[in-house]
Nucleic acid binder design. Structure first.
Lengths: 332, 332
DNA sequence: CTGAAAGCGCTTACAG
DNA sequence: CTGAAAGCGCTTACAG
């Protein structure tokens, strides 16, 4: 079913049919003609072919969403925010894997260089990706989420205020009287790890507490990293043992809680645990987990909005989202 | 950078450039000519425009993946399996929301009728979607995942053996000596709920235990449904109280465990809890959760493979995946 | 061994 | 008020 069929059925040219169906105001067809065209289109069940339109209009209606780990419960909010913003504009999201995009030139060509999408939202974070992202940004409108791209031209970054969130979480533990607070981090080479550690260090500094590297453990972002980090940091003898644990994300906290249970360490009795990232999960861990909610849904939303907005964001301007919020639960 | 530019730089026709670049064997160009074309393409950084190719070749390289709830931790495996299968064929996944696709004619047109994708994987489950899905299947190759489409022509279904999985979970509880096993279900109108209840009922029947409707509670698929279901079913006085709980998914189980903790009911001491669906989460609940692992990654994988396979699956043939597996943990 | 031409299905400047 | 024509960027049957 092509436009030509509709035009033939309505006895007009394809040009006029196209104009009327698209509500082109310059097309001042008679009401009867318009009606004939509309009727023909409806009867034939005509819907314009998206591909032909894309070629002609040089716009695909597609935004690439490229994330690290589809299976992480952390980023579902980001995805759903991005999807909602796209849907509002009649756009769809095309799913990509960050590691594959960065390492496989074939994928890069097929997605980016082939101009399959109008813009791309990339979850950055690893330093080695930066030059790749610059390359992408030379071809497509690009927004990086969840980590700032410091000083990289042409790339807009959208991310929550990580430092503030981490300060808030640390302040909460300080207010509860904790003075030795362990920090269970993500990977050492992650930008996000740095920012969260930075917020933690700032809060300690304000409270006149010396930063102690012995209290920091790096891991991956997953639960097993939290488990081993917790065990390791709780091995410290006697007084040097921390009385609270700052988990750099909810999965790490889940691992820490699990290790605590196995070690017969009571939470929050013996040690308090709190984490960055809120999710439904926090309510159903035992004990329920005190968290900082980062506005990840808005980050995803905003990233797509920037790509679709007529208003172009200048240079490497960095956009920030709503403030983090503390959710106090039973783990502290 | 268009093909015409490459052709001009190599001093050949676009036709020949296209053939050589695509490795067309009928194009028996001289090695020198081939080299010139390849060099020109490389120097100019040429990559064929995907949209033009799509229009000409009538294939988009895109598969629609339409799910109910992006934020559910249950379906991440399905998504990642589907993505991996697509990537292996150079395909990308286009993300859709099931409720939106079913209820918004605009979305239906823009995605399906406009032929934006080569095929679609839909997570079905609600009966009201069936006619809509048939409509889609008339336009696009369609695979339904996670629930069979009984007797609907032209729709292939890929799903795990729900009944077997539920029997296995029930049998596990029976083997532990439980005789009164509550069933915390998903929504009453869900096909998946029915299948799981069916497996549960079959296992009871084999063990000569009468099915007792008083032990069944319906809810949504989320944790709060599990929480209220658990509270309600444990309200039964004395001997009629269940000694075990079958949770129809992991989130429901999380809610049940949380309710148990709040009610000072020990798990597995006072009541055993087990659930359908395995995920990393099961290890980090307290107590860790006994589950049945359904091969959801393979379901996603297989669904995409069927769409991309040259071998067409006939009619409404239904494809089944690897057998479910029991993961015994501390909750039983 | 290589090219001219047609066409995928649309949209829009130009013309009348 | 409406249409003929060109063109988006590719590929491939046809021709030589």
């Amino acid at each position: 079913m092509r436009l030509a069929d509709v035009a033939a059925a309505a006895d007009v040219s394809p040009a006029l049919a196209s104009r009327v169906l698209n509500g082109d105001l310059t097309a001042r067809a008679t009401p009867e003609t318009k009606q004939r065209i509309a009727d023909a289109a409806r009867e034939l069940g005509y819907v314009a072919n998206a591909i032909a339109r894309q070629l002609r209009n040089k716009t695909t209606g597609l935004i690439g969403l490229v994330v690290h780990d589809l299976t992480s419960p952390i980023y579902v909010d980001l995805m759903s925010g991005a999807r909602a913003a796209a849907a509002e504009h009649g756009y769809f999201l095309l799913l990509g894997d960050a590691d594959e995009l960065m390492s496989n030139p074939q994928t890069f060509r097929n997605l980016v260089a082939a101009r399959r999408i109008d813009g791309i939202v990339i979850q950055a974070g690893h330093a080695d990706f930066e030059s790749r992202i610059e390359e992408i940004a030379r071809i497509l409108p690009t927004v990086v989420v969840n980590a700032p791209m410091d000083g990289r031209a042409g790339v807009v970054g959208v991310y929550p205020d990580e430092v503030l969130g981490s300060r808030m979480l640390t302040d909460h533990l300080l207010e509860l009287g904790h003075r030795r607070i362990a920090f269970l981090s993500g990977p050492e080479d992650s930008q996000t790890s740095h920012l969260r550690l930075e917020g933690y260090a700032q809060a300690l500094s304000c409270a006149q507490i010396a930063f102690d590297e012995e209290l920091v453990r790096y891991g991956d972002w997953r639960a097993d990293g939290g488990e081993s980090g917790f065990r390791s940091v709780m091995d410290s003898a006697g007084d040097s043992r921390p009385t609270a644990v700052f988990a750099a994300n909810t999965l790490i906290a889940a691992g820490a809680l699990s290790a605590a249970a196995a070690m017969d360490i009571s939470v929050p009795g013996d040690v308090a645990v709190a984490a960055i990232h809120d999710s439904w999960l926090a309510d159903y861990l035992v004990p329920s987990l005190t968290t900082i909610e980062l506005p990840l849904r808005q980050v995803g939303w905003q990233a797509v909005r920037i790509l679709l907005a007529d208003s172009v964001v200048e240079g490497d301007v960095v956009v920030s989202s709503p403030a983090p919020a503390l959710h106090r639960r039973n783990s502290t």
